[in-house]
Amino acid sequence: MIIAQRLALGVLTLIVVSMVIFGAVSMLPGDFAEAILGQGATPQAVAAIRRDLGLDEPAILRYFSWLGDTLRGDLGVSYAQMNFQSNMGGGDNLRTVASQIAPRFANTMFLAGVTACIAVPFAVGLGILAALFRNSAFDKAANVSTLSSISSPEFFLAYILILFLAVLNPVLPSLSNIYEGMTLSERLEKTLLPALTLTLVVTAHMMRMTRAAIINLLASPYIEMARLKGVSPMRVIVRHALPNALAPIINVVALNLAYLITGVVVVEVVFVYPGIGQLFVDSVKNRDIPVVQACCLIFAAAYILLNLTADILSILSNPRLRHPK
């Protein structure tokens, strides 16, 4: 019941977001025609391209035709592709936005997945240890180091890692150029350095929330009871505090995973990683609106889906809701 409600709310949010995206993109100064023609933008040429792409129609109409296409799974054709086609002739194999984004998106998900597999257990484990040895030197060191890593710019962290792991001790490749046909282990090796950089970026939030959520519970009577039963300190934290601290931890993890999908363009640039972030930035530069809109929609969907999952998981982590009276 609650879950169905959340799902409906998620869909509604996505529709609102699509309007915002469309509105924001329409308000970008300049358009594809001006951007592609550059210096040679005569009014006639601009108007011709606009007419070809349907840019001269009213915004409302364009929104609904885009929304309708999107709902049918058709994200359209990139303007850049279309233009290239009409100028140079060439075959019929027009690359759709979907086919353009798909491999990039898969790469981004791969990087996010690898990072999540490293960062989530690392951050939660570190948070548990920090809670266990709270106010000790270990706790302070963990706090200071994660905080300083989150406070440093991503490219800086990336170059430091490159310096230590690729230049001074060449154990990992500094370029993450991934292409089709690589084996999984090759892919992993190439992805490891950006994944480590991103781990450094997202650990602090998750670790500090884990620590705080657990410490918050340590004054509860049931924790005291566990101690008075002679339960070891580690078991008190892992078995008695952690299950009750899951809801806030899950939410922070979800937010950070969403960041991994949508906010990693800097890291992609540094490691020349062919993810969706680079494609997105290039498309904005070229005013290639179908691609920009599709990327935005994917980012929004990722955020909404992850938060939805987090909500549902936090509900499921509560025994009162799992086992009603």
């Binding site: 009577p221 049931y222 009871m225 009750n244």
Partner: peptide, 11 residues
């Protein structure tokens, strides 16, 4: 303990 409701772990 005084309050069993608070002293049993809800999880």
């Amino acid at each position: 303990a005084q309050s069993a409701a608070a002293s049993f772990n809800p999880a």
